[in-house]
């Protein structure tokens, strides 16, 4: 069942740059979709449009039903340095004025799901890059989203940390039945995570290829995964 549809969406910045033109794609419920493309192809702009942080100049974004609960994860962990992990994870609940006790237990549960039990009172500066990103994802999950928007969330992390987070993200998204739109410039990551990869062309961004991948779970060392990855890489090379 369709969750949202972008139809002919265009966005020009006040600087005159045409970030997106005629961007059209559809996302279904509980799907994991990657937007893959070179830097500056408007991937992040597309996410910000879907989040409603900016408005399109042309085209439309159509939701099937009411706009679902959204959460956003940035490339940087974007935590409040003056607040501990629990307070950071609690932020969306605090903003919605959820009672403190309830908010605390929900945030603590979200941290525990990301393997951060015992780090509730740690400050961001005391955490590694991977752990900060885990707090950031816990904060997103604490909002109980139906749709999770992720903007190159693991781009700044080392390969081993990234692999671990990829697996945890897949598990969590499946458990909660969350739809994920995942922006990345990594072929391997998109091939590992997604049910569908949308390859975007450079500025102005639009969808140039769409690759449906066989359903998971996937083995990074299997020939089937290598074949999927090669298809994604081929599509990306054709764009560049």
């Amino acid at each position: 069942m369709s969750l949202l549809t972008l139809r002919g969406v265009g966005k020009r910045f006040s600087s005159g740059t045409q970030a997106l033109s005629d961007l059209s794609f559809q996302v279904s419920n509980e799907e994991f979709v990657s937007l893959l493309g070179p830097s500056g192809c408007g991937k992040s702009t597309a996410l910000r449009l879907i989040a409603g942080l900016i408005a399109p100049d042309s085209g439309e974004i159509i939701w099937s039903g009411a706009r679902p609960e959204l959460a956003f994860v940035f490339q940087e962990a974007t935590l409040m340095p003056w607040a501990d992990a629990l307070t950071n994870a609690r932020l969306p609940l605090d903003l919605k004025k959820v009672p403190r006790g309830e908010a605390n237990s929900q945030a603590a549960a979200a941290l525990a799901r990301l393997g951060l039990k015992g780090f509730e009172s740690a400050y961001p500066r005391e955490l590694s890059g991977g752990m900060k990103m885990r707090v950031s994802i816990a904060r997103a999950l604490a909002a109980r989203p139906r749709l999770l928007l992720m903007d190159e969330p693991f781009a700044a992390l080392d390969e081993i940390t990234r692999v671990g987070l990829n697996d945890d993200l897949l598990t969590l998204a499946r458990e909660d039945g969350i739809t994920v739109i995942f922006v990345t410039h990594s072929v391997m990551e998109s091939a590992y995570l997604s049910s569908r990869v949308l390859v975007m062309s450079p500025r102005p961004g639009r969808i140039k290829a769409e690759i449906a991948l066989p359903p998971g779970p996937r083995d990074r060392l299997s020939p089937a995964f290598a074949a999927g990855q090669a298809r994604v890489a081929g599509a990306l090379l054709a764009v560049a």
Partner: peptide
Amino acid sequence: NLMELMRLYGA
């Protein structure tokens, strides 16, 4: 980014 995130959560 934090400000946008807060706006997204309806702050």
